[in-house]
Simulated scan of single mutants.
Amino acid sequence: MKKNLLSFLAIFLIIEEWLWDLLTAFGSAPNHWLNLEQFEQWLSQTVLLINKVDINMKV
Rank of each mutant, 00 (worst) to 15 (best):
K3I: 15
S7Y: 06
S28Q: 14
L43G: 02
T24R: 09
S28F: 14
N35Y: 10
F12H: 03
K2D: 08
W20N: 02
V53K: 13
L23C: 14
L13K: 04
L43T: 04
F12E: 08
N56P: 05
D21R: 03
L23H: 12
L43R: 01
M57Q: 11
F39H: 12
L19V: 07
I55H: 08
V53D: 07
K58T: 11
N56V: 11
N56L: 14
L9I: 11
Q41W: 00
V59A: 15
L36Y: 10
N35D: 15
I50H: 01
A29K: 13
N51Y: 06
N51L: 12
H32F: 14
A10P: 04
M57V: 13
K52S: 13
L34K: 10
K2Y: 09
F39D: 14
W20Q: 02
N31K: 09
F12W: 09
S44N: 03
A10V: 10
K2E: 12
K52G: 06
Q38Y: 02
S28C: 09
I50C: 00
F39I: 12
P30W: 09
G27M: 13
N35R: 12
L23S: 08
L43E: 05
G27I: 14
F26C: 10
N35I: 08
I14T: 12
L9C: 04
T24I: 12
M57I: 14
T46C: 02
G27S: 14
L48N: 10
E17Q: 01
I14G: 05
Q45S: 00
N4K: 09
